[in-house]
Design a binder for these strands. Structure first.
Lengths: 252, 252
DNA sequence: GCTCCTGCCTGCCGCTACGTGAGAGTCAAC
DNA sequence: GTTGACTCTCACGTAGCGGCAGGCAGGAGC
């Protein structure tokens, strides 16, 4: 019962190169060679190959497989547990990805065209997801962030357009107020600050006064946010910041 | 709004090296450089990076991402569909593996010790999985193969031992019959051929006469199967082959 | 002006698990 | 004795970076 590389390859469903490789790294060396140097695999080699392929299927790197197979003292149960954890994690990731892609497909089928490009188009230059990676780093484990993500995922293009319209309407009103010379702690400014909080609560996540003042601080601290508001009207970032704080204090 | 590599890396949650790499392969080149040669990323670059990371998350290779993003005529829906298929296939594989590993863990907890080594021990030299890879290539998309896999996955060590015992009993009887000189198309031989079919049906999958004659042909065509039967008794492969065909014809 | 620290630059080698030849020898068949 | 299939050993190529080395750049502190 001796087999050549080609035969083993066929039987095991791997390539000859793979067997050469396993020989090279000492994972599976044939038990003998012919006088011409041809590899000769026997049944024991085939069994070992089976083991190798089994662990490989489970995602073990070849080096570890070598260790597992060659070390009779190794605890197979421990390996299984670890592998089970790894697998379930990968499984979850994959499932999430499938869900994400199904969502994307659904959106594109409905002609809502919520591909990322479209979303950028809808969002204009103030994309809630523009700084998503950073947001995730900062707030990835907060309830608000998860809530926001959950809601955002369901929004249609129309929802986004309505959102944008409401935002722009609010923007026009606060710009007009600021231009009128009303101070940032005037009742009118505080009312618009309150409306700002409610817009966030309605569209993204329950925004408390505390969270809102945090946002306000960031509008000044993070130049990208500052730029966004300054771009609407010079001085707006600071004006909004003060109005939000004044409103939060008066409601406390 | 210009950012250095380090800033972009932090914001996007990738490493500087990754950005260098994306620049190298032309996937994401910063829109400018400082006089000192520092990369300068602007908001548009960040948006592109978002797209890149989005597709990367979905498992697209970088080269394809380049094509998708740079080619406005490319159909994102088609890409998504293809990716969805790939992912679901991988997902199914992973799920099967998790099931398998959970089964193995269960077994090891019960001290049944169904580690692969154990299974080889139980199977002796005629492991139903010995040629699994090839079997999958040949029959991977048949109902019989799936059915067999489903059943096999549930078998306990005791089941395997009973299976082996039944097989050996049948083996002894057919060897005895052949030794007695009864022709392969005798009623007794045909009866044992019938029993062979029922053994397969009981332990692995519903085996029709047609499928059984296919198996019989393979016992002669594939030297490994031939060797298995010839190892039990010289001439058995051909004898069984003829008996199976005779039985199938008489039942048709 | 000098030093220190941090961040940036460009190579370039390394990793996994093989794929894919090149060039040469081997084996069984016709 | 010649073909054709199979095998051998280099040895470079792949994807997606990680991680050095050696050398500028730029701001802070002395």
């Amino acid at each position: 019962m001796a087999y050549t590389v080609g035969q083993v390859a066929k039987v095991a469903g791997v390539t000859v190169r793979t067997l050469h490789h396993y020989d090279e790294i000492g994972l599976l060396s044939p038990s003998g060679r012919t006088s011409a140097g041809y590899r000769r695999y026997d049944d024991a080699d085939l069994q070992r190959l089976q083991l190798v392929l089994y662990y490989r299927e489970l995602g073990f790197p070849l080096e570890e497989i070598t260790a597992i197979i060659d070390d009779p003292a190794a605890d197979p149960a421990a390996h299984l547990r670890r592998q089970h954890e790894l697998l379930t994690v990968r499984l979850k990731r994959l499932q999430e990805m499938v869900t994400a892609i199904e969502f994307a497909m659904e959106a594109s089928k409905m002609n809502i065209q919520l591909t990322p490009e479209e979303r950028f188009e809808v969002f204009g230059d103030f994309d809630p997801e523009e700084h998503q990676a950073e947001a995730e780093q900062r707030w990835g484990d907060t309830d608000a962030y998860r809530e926001s993500n959950r809601r955002v995922a369901r929004y249609s293009k129309d929802d986004w357009l309505r959102n944008k319209a409401e935002n722009e309407d609010w923007g026009r009103r606060i710009v007009a107020l600021m231009a009128s010379g009303a101070p940032a702690d005037s009742p009118e400014a505080m009312e618009l600050a309150e409306e700002h909080r409610q817009l966030i609560s309605r569209w993204f996540y329950e925004c408390s006064y505390e969270m809102q003042t945090g946002l306000a601080d960031m509008y000044l601290a993070d130049e990208r946010f500052t730029a966004h508001y300054e771009n609407i009207a010079p001085g707006l970032a600071a004006y909004l910041h003060e109005a939000i704080h004044a409103n939060a204090i008066s409601r406390a």
